[in-house]
């Protein structure tokens, strides 16, 4: 008998012929408490994890805010995944010929090498969905390859208010590979105190658009 057959045979022997049917009660909360402002809650909970949260009420303000963040953080090279809205980048001086405020936009097309990502100051993406209760961003395939939001040390994420749901059970299906991000990289390995910033991006800026 090969390993597969043997493990399966052991399982069948262990369970016996009469199998108990188990129902899963799903009476846990699917909705946030009545009257919850999910966008405000999301902003609060993400900030709880030491993300830098900024609210932009109108879509037209996003580009200005992105430009401001890029200048404030001194970002000179910014990774941009395929499909990221160009309109959000109009506040970033990506066209100049190397002036003082010039920012090199590094589009992932053709794919950037890992070394190039490591050498980039930041990445900017959107998110597929976000969860207010836990302060979680969900990144899917439409937000670019997983390495893009991992290797650069700063991640700027534009979150449209309509993509924020209240609870984890309300999340829409996001086909894998997917990554749930709740705040910047962190560890609790030293005396169980949470410290932000280990291997993933140490700075997470979240721009919440709309209300």
């Amino acid at each position: 008998m090969d390993a597969r057959e043997e493990v399966l045979a052991r399982i069948r022997a262990a369970l016996g012929p009469r199998r108990e049917r188990v129902e899963v009660p799903r009476d846990y909360h699917r909705q946030p408490p009545e009257g919850t402002d999910v966008v405000a809650l999301f902003a609060e909970r993400v900030a709880d994890y030491r993300a830098d949260v900024r609210r932009v009420t109108a879509a037209c303000g996003v580009a200005d805010e992105v430009g401001r963040v890029v200048r404030e953080l001194g970002i000179r090279s910014l990774v941009v995944p395929v499909g990221f809205p160009d309109a959000y980048l109009s506040g970033v001086d990506g066209d100049g010929a190397g002036g003082r405020d010039h920012v090199e936009l590094r589009r992932d097309d053709p794919p950037l090498s890992t070394a190039q990502l490591d050498d980039s100051d930041a990445v900017i993406t959107e998110c597929a969905a976000a969860v207010a209760e836990t302060g979680t961003l969900v990144l899917g395939r439409d937000q670019g390859r997983r390495a893009l939001t991992l290797v650069p040390d700063r991640h700027i994420c534009v979150v449209r208010a309509e993509r924020v749901v209240g609870t984890v059970p309300q999340l829409p299906a996001v086909p894998p590979p997917a990554t749930w991000v709740s705040g910047p990289s962190a560890t609790s390995d030293i005396e169980l105190h949470r410290v932000e910033g280990v291997h993933g991006p140490r700075t997470l800026v979240v721009l919440v658009v709309g209300c």
Partner: peptide, 21 residues
């Protein structure tokens, strides 16, 4: 586990994905 509402990173993947990973 860590007493957090959600841990910083959760990765979900399925087999292999061309061009990613």
């Amino acid at each position: 586990a860590t007493g957090e509402r959600m841990n910083p990173y959760t990765s979900l993947w399925r087999g292999t994905t061309p061009g990613d990973g």
